[in-house]
Amino acid sequence: MGSDKPQPLVETRTISKRFGEGDARVDALREVSLAVYPGEVVGLLGPSGSGKTTLLNVIGCIVEPNAGWMSLDGEVVYDEGWRRSDLRRLRLEKIGFIFQFHNLLPFLNCFDNVAIVLNLAGFTPLAARQRAIELLEYLEVGHRKDAFPAQLSGGEAQRVAIARALANRPRIILADEPTAALDSERAGIVMDLLRKVAAEQHAAVLAVTHDDKIYDRLDRVFDLRDGRLGEDHEPKVGGMT
C-alpha cells in the first residue's frame, strides 16, 4: 500500500459470498477486493443480480462472507474471536445505511425514528432532539416530524431514512439506490448532502445506483459483473446534462 495514501475506511480482500448449495448455488461475490478512502463518494454499478446489494450487506456487517478479509475504519471485522455484538456495535457506531426500501419503524414518528439512533448512541435527550430536528429540516422533512412512516410519500420516507442514517455521524455510509424514490432535483440534493458529509466528516460513501443523473457526483466507480469486480475508473459522464 502506498505510504502517500491515507488508511482506507473500507477495505476488503478477496471477499466471496455464495448462497445455496449444489444446483441452487449462486456465487454472489467472487474474490472482491476494494478500498474506499475518507472523503470519497464511490459508485457501485452493475446489472441486476450482479451482487451489488450483497456487497453492501457484507460491508455493512449484515451478511457474513464465506471467505476473505475485511476491515472497517481500521478495525478488522472477522478476526479471530469476533462476536455478533461486535457487528452490532460497528453498525451503530461506524455505519449509516440508506436502503432501497426505507425501513423506518412504523410505530415511531419521523422524529423518533431519527432520535432512536441517537438514543442508542448515548446522546442526551436534548442533544438528540436538536440533531434530529436539524437533520430533518436539512432534508426538507422537518414539517413532517410528527407523522408516522405510513403517512409519508415514498420520497419523504426515504429522506427520513437518510436523516436516520446520518444521525450518528457515521464514517461509512452505504446507500442502495438512495435516489430511486426521488425526483431529479431532490436526488441531486441528497447526493450533494452525501458529498458534504463525506467532505466534512471524512466519511466514505459507497452508493449503488442506476441513476445516471447523479454520475457527476461520484468520485470513482466500481463495476460489478457476476460477482466479480472490475477496475475502478472515473465515472463516464454519458447521456446526462
Binding site: 449484515i62 455484538s85 456495535r89 451503530l92 423506518l104
Partner: peptide, 11 residues
C-alpha cells in the same frame, strides 16, 4: 421491526 432495530445497531 426487530430486524430493523438490529440493523441500526440496537443492542
Amino acid at each position: 421491526e426487530i430486524a430493523t432495530l438490529k440493523l441500526i445497531g440496537a443492542p
